[in-house]
Design a protein around this nucleic acid. Structure first.
Lengths: 138, 138
DNA sequence: ATATCTGCAAATGGTTTGCGGAGGA
DNA sequence: TCCTCCGCAAACCATTTGCAGATAT
């Protein structure tokens, strides 16, 4: 008797490929809807359902990150390795923060909690350069 | 001519009072629905809308925190001062992490980004004690 | 050949909101 | 009294899902 664990084999579809390309090409942290608007012209019959299904698959494959900062919708990030973010509390824009991961935080938290801590997410809040300028002009 | 900036004066209602008490009394990070189930017995006609409206008010008053960790629903925290959290990646439970705030992180991120950074949120991921035990038993 | 994927449209479900009456100040 | 708050129910809206046909391997 042979037991096989069946695992879904992903196909390479043009839609999924373009979604990933669009996500990799932007520095922003777009919503599903924005990605849809970008890819739609190439696939006039494209539906939002396809966008959501592919974003989910890409996330499961570790190709992208889903970011959820408390708004009513998700944002997606074409960089899949862990990194920090900044959200402007005025305009709501999301930026990458390219500082090194502080893995000491995991150790400290492990000591504090006794849990097995593997990872962390860090988000900064404040005013971005643009909003800072507007404020200074007053 | 006198210009008055009208500001809504909150009334003290029994419903809102109980919602805050329930939230302060629990160590967990309950959902709106759980809070509803706790307060409902005292107010048989209570509606979920009232829960949501009051949670929003309490948040605006700085009495509580709304936590949004990427699930489809929010959790609420009766401790309103900033503190760190841990989420078990197996059971999904949310725990407080009582380690001191690392305000150096804000300084580092300010240096990296040039933004005016005031605050940060830090969330740890891993296995909680309970789920760790289950794994060790295998 | 066949299991995955797509477009379409309807469903889902947590949260919000309009309304008329209740109740706190 | 007056304005905020409540209960109720409908609306909202990002996301998910069922289905039938298309497509990648």
């Amino acid at each position: 008797m042979v037991i096989t664990i069946s695992e879904k084999v992903l196909r390479r579809t043009r839609q999924r490929q373009r979604i990933l390309e669009v996500l990799r090409a932007t520095k922003g942290h777009p919503t599903a809807d924005w990605i849809y608007s970008q890819v739609k012209p190439e696939f006039p019959r494209l539906s939002l359902g396809t966008i959501y299904r592919n974003l989910k698959l890409l996330k499961e494959q570790g190709e992208i990150l889903e970011l959820d900062f408390g708004s009513t919708f998700s944002r997606f990030d074409g960089r899949s390795e862990n990194h920090y973010h900044f959200i402007c509390r005025k305009c709501g824009e999301v930026f990458d923060v390219d500082m090194p991961l502080d893995n000491n935080l995991n150790k400290k938290a492990t000591k504090t909690t006794g849990f097995d801590i593997e990872d962390h997410r860090l988000v900064f809040y404040g005013l971005c350069k643009g909003c800072l300028k507007i404020r200074e002009r007053r």
